[in-house]
Structures are given as structure tokens and as C-alpha cells.
Nucleic acid binder design. Structure first.
Lengths: 188, 188
DNA sequence: GTCTATAGATCGATAGAC
DNA sequence: GTCTATCGATCTATAGAC
């Protein structure tokens, strides 16, 4: 059983790369078998509902990573400023300083947003809300905290769009720096 | 001839809606024939290179709209502040206050960015550069103008991602307001 | 669990009548 | 210019051997 879970999880990471490159509709099972090294039989063993279940698993996996590595630190009520700093570091690492896109953002703009609406909505809500509460704890007023949290998440997503569009990852690192500077308690 | 161009252009607008809803790979010719009301014969008459040419025409059409209704006003060296104000108004109108996505942003994140790389790159470069020069003319220093221009375009694109993700168009209008306030000469 | 073979539908694109 | 008919390829998904 441990082995089964481990291999399914390995498959998820490989499938994610295909979706990242070709989108949902553009990812054929042929491409997925090649990237994962698994035959269709194995894929349907792990994901009985086929392509849609693969995408669900991938989006859940990304969400879980952010839950563990980003939102959790933001919810740490003891050290809100440190949590925010950890968020910026984790985000920069995850998106490879602008060379990687956000699958949940891409799915939100792209084909077939509907089947994954719930996961997408939860991801962005969790992020914005956890950040707003952390900002509140650093001394922001409630409305300012909400506004700044939205500004940060908007900025990160927009920077990923522009970095990809202009093929210039530095748009992303510049944006992260600018957002950091706008939060007084963490500008170190 | 006038009639031919006019009808091709009508087709472009209808095709754009299909791409907006299903992305590139997800837009089947069947869906396009239904939305346009044209048979495949007519579509291939207008777009001999098929689906790819349809997408090129759509992206060029969007670019042309921004060129005329946004970038042109920004380049008016006589009234930079008024040009920037016009940009915000046109952008709010075009994206229907957050209910519509940016096709060029969606194509940048999604499948098949590669064939359209040039158009996408030009769109975002033109926008950022025209805005930076307008900001320069309102009194910003060169580096501050470039930074603010990037912040505005990043903010608009990110707000469109979040508005769609959270199914809350107000994220977009709030972001536009926030960006406006950050440009001293136009906060009216 | 993993494979091959293949079903059945749909894909983009073309041909040719009108 | 617009239509219908259809091609060949490719698609997702399933069946069944091992």
C-alpha cells in the first residue's frame, strides 16, 4: 500500500508537468504516458476516472503543497511577520523565480475551469485569507490587511503572466521585491 | 470586397468568444461553426490555414483594439495624464469590469503559447512601454515610471486571474481603483 | 499492476457540388 | 461563398492477457 501511494504520487508530479506545458485539453493521454513512463492500463489503475481525475489529483497536490509550505506558516499566530517572509521565500522557490507558471491560475483562465472550480476557488481564498490574517496580526487594520493581501496575490499571479508573456522571469522577482517592500514589518 | 472583410471580421469576433471559453486546444471546429453560424467550408475560405490562422486573427484583432483604444492615447505626448486616465477607462470597459478575461494572458499561460509568442510578447511590451513613457511625461523619473508601468500591467492581469478564480469581478474593479490612486497626477 | 490491442467518438482538414 | 460528405489521424477509454 505504501508502495502504491508512492507511485501514484510520483505519477502525479509527472502528469503535472504535462498539464503545465499543454494545458488540460491539450494534454493527450499519449503525452501523459510518455512523460510518466506508464501505460494507459497503469494510468487508469491509478486514476479510474481518467484525465479528469488526473487533473483533480494534480491540482489537489499543488494545493496541498501550498497548504503545507505557505498557508500553514501564515496561520502561525506567534510569528506573523516571519510567516509572511516564509511565504515570499516559498513562492519564489516554487515558481522557480518566475520560470514556472501557477497551474491553478492557468486552469482558472483556460479551458475547462468549470470541473475544477471548487479547488481553484479554495486555493485562492485560502491564500488571500491566511495572508490577510497574518497582516492583521502584524498591525495592519482589517481593511488595510485585506487590501494588501489581495494586492500581493494579484501581484504574484500577474507577474507570472507577464514573466511568461515577455519571456522575462525577472518581472517576477522584481514584483516579489516590490511587494515585500510594501509590507513595513518584514522589509529586511 | 468590403463585404468580404466585414464578414471575416464578424467571424473573428465570434471565434474569439469560443477561444475565450474553451482555450485554443479545447476549441473544436464544431464549436466554432456553431458559434459563428458558418460551415467549415466558409471558415476555411476566410482562414485557409485553419484553426491556427483563426487564433492568429483573433489575437491580432484584440491587439489592434488595444493599439487603437489604449496605446494610442498613452502615446499622446500632449496629455499624458489624460491618456493614462483613458487607459483605465478603456481597460475597465474592455474586460467588462472583471467579467472578461484577457485572451493574450490566457494564451500566454495556456496550451500552445509558442505559435503566438510574438503577438503576445508585442502586446505586453507595447502596453508596458507606452505606459512607462506616459508616466515619464507626467513627471516620474525613468526608473520609477518603468516600475509603475510594470506594476499596473501586472496588477491588471493578476486581477483578471483572481476575479475569474474567485468568481468575484470586484477584485478587478478594486485593483483598478488601487492602481489609479497610486498615480498622483490622475487621482481624480 | 502493467501491458497491448482496439473500440468508438471526435478531431482538423479537404473535396466537390451548388 | 457556403454547404454536405467524408477522409485519415488522433482522441479518451475499455477489454483482457499476463
Amino acid at each position: 500500500m505504501t508502495r502504491e501511494v508512492a507511485e501514484r504520487h510520483d505519477a502525479i508530479a509527472a502528469v503535472a508537468e504535462v498539464f503545465r506545458e499543454h494545458g488540460y485539453a491539450g494534454s493527450s493521454l499519449t503525452a501523459i504516458t510518455q512523460q510518466t513512463g506508464l501505460g494507459k492500463g497503469s494510468l487508469y489503475h491509478f486514476f479510474p476516472n481518467g484525465k479528469q481525475e488526473m487533473a483533480e489529483a494534480v491540482l489537489e497536490d499543488v494545493s496541498a503543497w501550498f497548504e503545507e509550505n505557505v498557508f500553514l506558516a501564515l496561520r502561525d499566530s506567534e510569528a506573523p511577520a516571519r510567516g509572511i517572509e516564509q511565504m515570499f521565500e516559498a513562492v519564489d522557490r516554487y515558481f522557480r523565480s518566475g520560470e514556472r507558471i501557477c497551474l491553478l491560475g492557468a486552469f482558472a483562465l483556460g479551458d475547462s475551469r468549470e470541473p475544477f472550480e471548487r479547488v481553484i476557488h479554495r486555493y485562492f481564498s485560502s491564500w488571500t485569507e491566511a495572508l490577510a490574517e497574518a497582516l492583521l496580526r502584524t498591525g495592519f487594520t482589517a481593511p488595510k490587511a485585506a487590501e494588501m493581501a489581495e494586492e500581493v496575490v494579484v501581484g504574484i499571479q500577474g507577474a507570472l503572466v507577464l514573466a511568461r508573456s515577455r519571456q522575462d522571469p525577472q518581472v517576477f522577482t522584481r514584483t516579489l521585491q516590490r511587494l515585500r517592500r510594501r509590507i513595513p514589518t518584514i522589509q529586511s
